[in-house]
Design a protein around this nucleic acid. Structure first.
Length: 413
DNA sequence: TGTAGGGCTAGTT
DNA sequence: AACTAGCCCTACA
């Protein structure tokens, strides 16, 4: 009962209720946004939503496209901070450090907008609850019951990761692979000429190529559509190269996929394996994983884990284009399989790039970028955007000198 | 090639 | 609809 009502009360009400006798705890409940805002956010642990919610769920049309990510970020941040506070040996110290005024880390994130998604009435209310519980053992017991479920906190983090992961979308490599060997392969192969298909066979592997061309109702090798001496020469070279490749290189896709799955699983585990030390090092602005961002140590040697995709492959062999110039003018004594030069033809599994460059998605400037730009103008002078940019590559990630100029123009308005 | 100025676009109020 | 921040185009040195 108290849990169900707690989040809908003002901080003052919450403090009052925390000091009153506590009815049996029904378990984690859904945390709704205010009625006026009209959207729902899940802040408290919520394995199962209450059957009769005081507020109706928000209609999809009421939620902006960014709302799921923002809600997930807010829920994860608060769930982790709250769990850390209630699970700490010294509740008062932990709650003070995280939610106390004025310097609590979670409090600052809420009040200073370091994380915009956290700036909400609900987040304020949670921070106030923890602050009010300092020195109040009864309130601490209530909060431990509400936020002490580690699995629920981990679930909020997993949800955030899932949202962020989904937002990344497919890479161009994945899209290309999908067209060549995935569900879209049939149409891709149907539209390809014989020379291009020969390339596809190299990429897809003999077995998969047979499957795809079998579905096309054709056989391998298909009769040359283009029958010229040059095409025959290229075809022969490709067949030879293909045979050489298959004789020395294993299909890397299964191992690569397994390694990628393990890396992903390790990152998920790492993300939920939070502790107070990690929270205290959270940046408050510009959470961009740039070159100077805190390393995840993914490149460090790992015991008992699969090899990184970037590790040296002991089965790799060097091939040489047949018309590649010798640096020293002499042929290597080591025999290397010869491949036809890729410069002779200009086909690609990728769709031709759009001539019109796509507009970059607008990315808001963070406080660190603005401050660095101010100092850069002081140091290098107004108009020397290139100098400012090249001397702060870790801050201006993805920015152009032109962007700095535009931003400075906006800041001067 | 780097910069300035004007215009365009998407998001917000 | 008006406003704004961020991005892009084009001219110029």
């Amino acid at each position: 009962m108290l849990n169900n009502c707690l989040f809908f009360l003002s901080p003052a009400h919450v403090r009052t209720n925390l000091n009153s006798p506590l009815p049996p705890r029904p378990g984690p409940k859904t945390f709704h946004r205010s009625r006026a805002r009209g959207t729902a956010r899940r802040f408290a642990p919520r394995p199962t939503p209450p059957p009769t919610s005081p507020l109706p769920p928000a209609k999809p049309s009421q939620i902006s496209p960014a709302a799921p990510a923002a809600a997930a970020a807010a829920a994860a941040h608060l769930a982790v901070a709250a769990y850390l506070a209630v699970s700490a040996p010294d509740f008062d110290a932990a709650a003070g450090a995280l939610f106390g005024r004025p310097g609590g880390r979670a409090r600052r994130a809420v009040e200073e907008g370091g994380a915009a998604a956290l700036a909400s009435d609900e987040a304020d209310a949670v921070a106030d609850q923890f602050e009010a519980a300092v020195g109040n053992s009864f309130s601490q017991t209530v909060l431990r019951g509400l936020w002490g479920d580690r699995a629920a906190a981990e679930e909020r983090v997993r949800e955030l990761l899932a949202v962020e992961w989904a937002a990344i979308g497919q890479s161009r490599l994945e899209m290309a692979a999908e067209r060549i060997v995935g569900d879209g392969a049939i149409e891709t192969w149907r539209a390809a000429d014989e020379v291009t298909r020969a390339k596809y066979r190299l990429l897809a592997g003999e077995q998969r190529a047979r499957e795809i061309e079998g579905k096309l109702g054709e056989t391998i090798p298909q009769g040359n559509q283009i029958s010229t001496p040059e095409v025959h020469k290229v075809m022969d070279a490709l067949k030879s190269s293909c045979a050489n490749l298959h004789s020395v290189v294993e299909d890397p896709l299964p191992a690569a996929k397994a390694a990628a799955d393990e890396v992903l699983a390790a990152r998920m585990d790492k993300a939920v394996d939070l502790n107070a030390g990690e929270v205290s090092n959270q940046p408050t602005a510009c959470d961009i994983a740039g070159p100077s961002a805190p390393a995840d140590n993914l490149d460090a040697p790992r015991k008992g884990t699969a090899a990184s995709l970037m590790d040296w492959n002991p089965t790799a062999r060097t091939f040489q284009w047949e018309d590649s110039p010798d640096p020293d003018g002499s042929r290597s004594p080591i025999h290397r399989p010869q491949l036809p030069s890729p410069r002779r033809t200009t086909f690609s599994p990728l769709q031709p790039a759009d001539n019109k460059a796509k507009r970059r998605k607008a990315r808001k400037w963070c406080a660190l970028e603005e401050e660095t730009l101010r100092k850069g103008v002081e140091q290098y002078g107004n108009g020397n955007w290139k100098d400012i940019l090249t001397n702060n590559p870790d801050v201006f990630i993805g920015r152009k000198a032109m962007d700095l100029k535009d931003k400075w123009r906006n800041m001067m308005r």
